[in-house]
Simulated scan of single mutants.
Amino acid sequence: MSDFEMTRTLDEHAAESALRADVLHGLTRTPKVLPPKWFYDARGSELFEEITRLPEYYPTRAEREILLERAQEIASASGARTLVELGSGSSEKTRHLIEAMPALDTYIPVDVSESALAGAAGKLLEEHPGLRVHALLADFTRAMRLPESPGPRLVVFLGGTIGNLLPPERAQFLASVREMLSPGDTLLIGTDLVKDEAVLVAAYDDAQGVTAEFNKNVLAVIDRELGADFHTADFTHVAVWNREREWIEMRLRARSDAVVKIRALDLVVPFAAGEEILTEVSAKFRQEGVRRELAAAGLELTQWWTDAAGRFALSLSVAGREAG
């Protein structure tokens, strides 16, 4: 695979060390919290794929609708010769952009999963034999240096994943992305929009219980990786809309008093009946708020596209002459 290269910025023990640190910090504080990235082992990834096909879960369909309709406009507006995707996964949605960019020279997928990067690259190179793929095994929430590639660059961050970051984390993330860009480079972000509370809650608490199983999978990950004795049946999946902060909160609520032992950390974690672990925040956005957050990072929002129902948005912003 002569047109494929991978740069590793994470060592083989990075994930284990990060999990240990997150669990120790998150389950010894009040209220308890676990980062949503630990949903995604092999089983969690399968469950999320299932979630994207549920009738209640609209974001994936809405974002794909925009990409299919606007890929040519995005390609033309960016003029990109390098496409960088943060949290690329299977690179499935990005294919719509790549197909609309005949002048594209290099694709740089960034992900924490080496197998996902290699698998996606193999498929893309079969479909686009002239494309160069330089994968980056890295955590996109940390500062990183992109490999050399021709400009202009288009950085994409799809799926509404930016909503999983708290406002200070978003500000830090956008500032770090701006530092990667040269003047005239562009950033494409997917953002789920504020809408009716019932629609939002249903998207995170489906009738079939798939999201509930997905949420509880974080406990199965901790059991397996850290020798814990969580019992998923002892916890209830909860999804609530926080009106003041305009975000969905996913939580796991203890059904009764319990004590959980985590052998790898030599840690005992007590739970009172009704006590909750916050496992995910998923912020929803309004155009003016997105524009304001981008501007604070030195990025000017220039294009705003929504699906026909106005549920989801893709925004294109351009890097100005100076960061910040």
Score class of each variant (00 low, 15 high):
4 F>S: 04
5 E>W: 07
5 E>T: 15
8 R>A: 14
10 L>E: 11
10 L>P: 10
11 D>Y: 13
13 H>F: 15
16 E>K: 15
16 E>I: 13
16 E>P: 10
17 S>P: 02
19 L>W: 10
20 R>S: 11
20 R>F: 09
23 V>E: 08
24 L>T: 15
26 G>Y: 03
27 L>F: 09
29 R>L: 09
29 R>C: 13
31 P>I: 00
32 K>N: 02
34 L>R: 03
35 P>E: 14
37 K>R: 14
39 F>H: 06
39 F>S: 04
43 R>S: 14
46 E>G: 07
46 E>N: 13
50 E>D: 09
53 R>P: 01
53 R>Y: 08
61 R>M: 08
63 E>G: 07
63 E>C: 04
65 E>L: 08
66 I>G: 06
69 E>D: 11
70 R>K: 15
73 E>T: 12
74 I>C: 00
76 S>P: 00
79 G>L: 03
82 T>L: 01
82 T>H: 02
84 V>Y: 02
89 G>F: 05
89 G>N: 07
90 S>T: 00
91 S>G: 05
95 R>P: 00
96 H>R: 12
96 H>K: 11
100 A>G: 13
101 M>P: 03
104 L>V: 01
108 I>P: 04
113 S>K: 06
114 E>D: 15
114 E>R: 15
119 G>P: 02
120 A>F: 00
123 K>G: 01
130 G>S: 13
130 G>H: 14
133 V>G: 02
134 H>D: 04
139 D>L: 06
141 T>V: 03
142 R>G: 01
143 A>Y: 01
144 M>Y: 04
147 P>T: 09
147 P>E: 05
150 P>H: 04
154 L>F: 04
155 V>L: 15
156 V>P: 02
157 F>K: 03
161 T>G: 04
165 L>G: 02
165 L>T: 05
167 P>M: 08
167 P>Y: 05
168 P>K: 02
169 E>C: 05
169 E>A: 14
171 A>C: 10
172 Q>T: 06
172 Q>A: 15
174 L>N: 08
176 S>W: 02
176 S>L: 08
184 G>L: 13
185 D>S: 08
185 D>M: 10
185 D>T: 14
192 D>T: 01
192 D>G: 05
199 V>W: 03
200 L>Q: 08
202 A>H: 03
202 A>Y: 01
207 A>N: 06
209 G>A: 07
214 F>I: 14
217 N>F: 10
221 V>I: 07
225 E>P: 12
228 A>T: 12
231 H>L: 12
233 A>C: 03
235 F>M: 06
239 A>H: 00
240 V>F: 00
244 E>A: 11
245 R>Y: 04
245 R>N: 08
247 W>V: 00
250 M>Q: 02
252 L>A: 00
254 A>H: 01
260 V>I: 15
262 I>Q: 09
266 D>K: 12
268 V>W: 05
272 A>N: 05
273 A>C: 05
276 E>K: 04
279 T>E: 00
280 E>K: 03
281 V>Q: 01
284 K>F: 14
285 F>L: 10
285 F>K: 06
287 Q>T: 01
293 E>A: 09
293 E>W: 08
296 A>N: 06
296 A>G: 13
300 E>C: 15
301 L>M: 15
302 T>M: 12
304 W>D: 06
304 W>L: 12
307 D>Q: 07
312 F>W: 06
313 A>H: 12
316 L>Q: 09
317 S>D: 05
319 A>C: 12
322 E>C: 11
322 E>N: 08
322 E>H: 14
